[in-house]
Design a protein around this nucleic acid. Structure first.
Lengths: 156, 156
DNA sequence: TATTGTTATACTCTATAACTATA
DNA sequence: TATAGTTATAGAGTATAACAATA
């Protein structure tokens, strides 16, 4: 986390041309800013944004199948295995094998996991609120709507 | 690139709660979609989105200092070194040491680099256009404006 | 045979620190 | 001393394929 972002500490101006008209480019840049703002604002530093969202979904969907979780959050199964292992080692998540399908694994928060979640839930959403992001409340709402449309394409 | 995204192949519905109200989460999801759409649409597969934007900025700013480039695109110097090495090996970029400051390195596209850039420049922007993204032209414009405000905070 | 998750491998990206050569 | 870039190392994320257990 060196430069906050496209910092204009530079003497020489840089011409980006139409690059800021690429949705992909701008989303990448926005993510970097957001990541940085997360670490500046979020109280707890043990979990990173992506990890916290995994805990979030397990919290809201106890006994969720690991595969379903991976698919929902667009995380590759191989990577999900490692993430879950870390959570289990950290004592946040329990794994159970359901009798109906003994190939699958179901995930639930432990008491410690639930405590952790309750404690940081509000802060996790608030981090990306108006403050520190440079958008007004209305603009933030607008941005969220557009991103939701882009991501869920009417599925949700 | 397995599932296009939060694919609803799942039997069990997943409750995300207020997660879609987190700008950070939605940006992460949007980036995944975008990345996927890039590989589905972009003609050339040799460069990834991030790499192409580096070529782009060098193209528009010949003799740019490597450090300025890294700062502009929010890429860590150590990583930029490797990226540039790859580009040089691929014959796309030339490195020169300017006499004024022999610590620094200035980057310029080779003829091959310029050819490559010209060939794919249009496609790179078009990839993230309306099509495949599920937004109307107006919505895309709106999204771009908001992201630009978020990223550049009035600097550009 | 197909599916769920795991393991292994390889590569990219991030983060950090130590290093060099210049300034 | 400070700066520009490099090297080295370690960790996280992504992509793939091969594998075990189960269906």
């Amino acid at each position: 986390m060196n430069a906050p972002m496209p910092s204009r500490t530079e003497e020489e101006p840089v011409d980006l041309g139409d690059l800021p008209r690429s949705v992909g480019f701008m989303i990448r840049m926005a993510q970097a800013i957001n990541y940085e703002s997360f670490f500046r604002t979020f109280e707890d530093k043990t979990l990173k944004p992506g990890e916290f969202s995994v805990i979030w979904v397990i919290a809201l969907n106890p006994e969720i199948k690991q595969g379903t979780l991976a698919q929902t959050l667009n995380i590759k199964p191989a990577h999900m295995t490692k993430l879950v292992q870390r959570f289990v080692n950290a004592g946040l998540v329990d794994r159970t094998v359901p009798p109906e399908d003994r190939r699958s694994i179901r995930l639930t928060l432990t008491d410690a996991g639930r405590t952790y979640f309750s404690k940081h839930r509000a802060g996790f959403l608030k981090v990306h609120d108006t403050e520190g992001i440079g958008l007004t409340r209305d603009e933030t709402e607008q941005l969220l709507e557009l991103l939701q449309k882009l991501v869920f394409k009417g599925r949700r």
